[in-house]
């Protein structure tokens, strides 16, 4: 049986610098996989290649066994939530969500129904006529997710979506994301540089460094059973430091 998303032998070079070097991995239906790595390790480029915003020098991307490497982004059955959400600032919450549906030639009534349902699901019913500039970071992110879900993508990509939020909202959004994934049973590929976030959210964590995958495993194994020096340094130590700080804070 084919995997939901599979990436094979992916290479990308920018100005003679290898950004991605022989990337191979897969994600199964309903799985939540995080791509974890320091800034500049190539994780956002990987995401952009998977959705089709960037072209790889070599390699393939398949969805349900179909090679989508040459497909345009909108034909790949994927949606993406960007780090800074990229909401349409001149449109209200409702219009932001409805926009894609109307552009996709869905009828007005149907577009409105789908949008309203998504807005309700994201707990934004009282904000439908607000503009993005009038929303908090967490609310803006919910709008971005609702907009992405409007076209019912089978895979959702997240590009460091929580990095712009404050600590408490980030924690709140984490659990909401997890709940959302559980209810929609969608496949999620989630890019982050936050070890704690990756470990808390994911079914599997993929650690990247300098364009190479250093490990893909369950969060438990990534934290406890790794022999790779970089993974130990980047994940384990950081999580231990955070745990120590938390302990000191509580004490």
């Amino acid at each position: 049986m084919s995997h939901k998303l599979e990436v094979k032998k992916l290479y990308k070079t920018f100005d003679d610098k290898k950004i991605l070097n022989n990337i191979n991995f897969y994600i199964d239906q309903g799985e939540f996989v995080s791509v974890l790595g320091p800034s500049g390790c190539g994780k956002t480029t990987l995401l952009r290649i998977i959705i089709g915003l960037e072209k790889a020098d070599e390699g393939t991307v398949t969805v349900d066994g179909t090679d989508v490497t040459s497909f345009s982004p909108s034909k790949r059955k994927m949606g993406i939530v960007f780090q800074n959400y990229a909401l349409f600032e001149n449109m209200t919450v409702l219009r932001n969500v409805e926009y894609a549906l109307l552009c996709a030639k869905k009828g007005k009534k149907q577009a409105r129904e789908i949008s309203m349902a998504l807005i309700e699901q994201m707990h934004l019913s009282d904000k439908i006529n607000k503009y993005p500039s009038e929303l908090s970071g967490g609310q803006a992110q919910r709008v971005a997710i609702a907009r992405t879900l409007a076209l019912s993508p089978e895979i959702i990509l997240f590009d460091e979506p929580l990095s712009a939020l404050d600590v408490s909202t980030r924690l709140e959004m984490r659990s909401e994301l997890k709940e959302l994934q559980a209810s929609l049973k969608t496949t999620i590929l989630y890019v982050t540089h936050d070890q704690e976030e990756a470990v808390a959210l994911s079914d599997r964590v993929m650690v990247m460094s300098e364009g190479v995958i250093r490990a893909i495993d369950t969060p438990y194994n990534i934290v406890n059973c790794q022999t790779d020096e970089f993974v130990n340094e980047f994940v384990k130590k950081n999580i231990q430091i955070k745990a120590e700080s938390l302990k000191r804070f509580i004490n």
Partner: peptide
């Protein structure tokens, strides 16, 4: 990019 992924 959002437009491209939404097919706009």
């Amino acid at each position: 990019n959002v437009g491209l992924t939404l097919g706009v």
